[in-house]
Structures are given as structure tokens and as C-alpha cells.
Amino acid sequence: MSPVKLRADARRNREQLIEAAREVFAEFGTQAPLDEIARRARIGNATLYRHFPTRDDLLVAVYAEEVQALRAAGLHAAGLDNTVEVDQLFEWLAAFVRHVAEKGDLARSLEPSTRRSELHEEWHAAMVATVGGLVERAQEAGALRADVDPVDLLVLAAGMATAEPVRVKRMLQMVRRGVVAV
């Protein structure tokens, strides 16, 4: 089943709501009043609820866009020529750490359900595929050890998300020294 195609004004309203929600959630947390989101988007509450019947629907929309943007950044990095593959990998891992630190609450705020489990699996698979492509490219170039597992890098990076940025930078440098090909 293909997604419903929205009229231009409805698509614009949806985009404005998602952008406002991103800002409000960042400012006040994921339990921020939905009325504030509608107000900032300059859209009526009825329109908000027509697009997003539940808070979870809005959280999913915001977080899905964040995941898509992170995935796109990784795909872009993997497609760059004349660059150092390990640099691209670790720039993306730093972005992933920031993503988990800043946006992880969005995903964790979803109500436990089968849908949440499926979405988490989908988002996790997207991140594994992204880092996997970057790892594979670096390994093919001989810049990364052959035994580096992309999921291990994701787990390490996710664990770094609770640290201060200066510590994250040092930890990423330590991991990099441990995985580059000698």
C-alpha cells in the first residue's frame, strides 16, 4: 500500500508541525504540550490532530526524519571521492553520538507497543546499514582492520552519548586508533 499523497497545503502544514515539534521537544522535552507545537507552527489544534492523532504519531514523524537525515549523511559520506574513508566513518560516528545524545529521548518516549518495537528495529537496521557501508568502504581501501564489526562501533558510539563532548572526542580518537589498519 502506497502512502497517501497530500495536497500541497496539507504537506506544508505537516512539515511546519514537524519542524515546530522538533523545536518544542528540544526545548521542553517530549512531554511538551501539543498546543505549544500547534501555536508555534501557526496551525490550529484540529489540523495537528488530523495529521498526528497521538503524541506517538508526532514523535515517530520527528524521529523518523532525524534518522533519515543521519542515514543520508552517511550515504553522502560513503559516496564522496578523494576523501579518507576512516575520516568519513568517524565524522559520521561523531554525528551518531550527537544524535543519540540529543534525539534518543524521542525514540525512548514512544509508548511500548509492537509498533514501537518494529520502528526501533527499522531505525536500528538503517543505522547498521549506514555504518556498515562506511566500514566496508574503509576496509576495502585497506584503511580499517578487517575484523571491525559495524555493530560494535554503533554500540561503542551509543555508549559515548552520555559523556561530555570533549570526552566523546577523546573516546572516538581512542577507538579510531584501535581499528585503523596498521
Rank of each mutant, 00 (worst) to 15 (best):
A129G: 13
A64R: 13
N82K: 15
A158D: 08
D152V: 05
A141N: 03
V151G: 00
F90W: 02
L106F: 04
V67T: 15
W123R: 08
G132V: 02
G159D: 04
T162A: 10
V86N: 08
L153C: 09
A129R: 10
E66M: 08
L110M: 14
V62W: 00
T162D: 00
D81N: 12
L70K: 00
A95H: 03
F90V: 05
S113E: 14
L144H: 03
A78G: 12
G133I: 02
V148T: 10
A107E: 14
L89S: 08
D149C: 06
A77M: 11
P150M: 03
A157M: 06
A94R: 14
V131K: 11
A157G: 02
A101K: 04
A138M: 13
A126T: 01
T130S: 10
E102T: 10
V84A: 09
S113V: 11
A138Y: 09
L153R: 04
E111K: 11
H99G: 02
A72C: 09
V67L: 04
M160S: 11
M127S: 12
A94N: 15
V148W: 12
D152M: 08
F96S: 04
E65V: 03
A107L: 14
A77V: 09
Q68I: 00
S109P: 15
D149H: 14
V155Q: 05
S113W: 02
L89C: 07
L156M: 13
A107S: 14
L119E: 08
G104H: 01
N82W: 15
D87Q: 06
H76P: 00
P112N: 04
A73N: 11
V97C: 09
W92E: 10
Y63G: 09
A73F: 15
A126E: 13
H120E: 15
R98D: 14
Q68N: 08
L134A: 11
E121M: 03
E66T: 01
L134D: 10
A107F: 03
E111H: 07
E111G: 00
D147Y: 03
Q88N: 12
H120C: 07
L110H: 10
A64H: 11
H124I: 06
L106S: 11
R116I: 00
E136W: 07
H120W: 01
R116S: 14
A94G: 11
L89W: 09
T130C: 04
H99T: 07
T130E: 07
A78E: 12
A72P: 04
H120D: 12
A157Y: 07
M160N: 01
L153P: 08
K103G: 01
D87S: 06
R115D: 11
V84R: 13
T130N: 03
D87V: 10
A72W: 07
V135M: 08
H99E: 06
R71Q: 13
L106D: 04
V62C: 01
L119D: 02
G74H: 01
L154M: 10
H120R: 12
E65F: 01
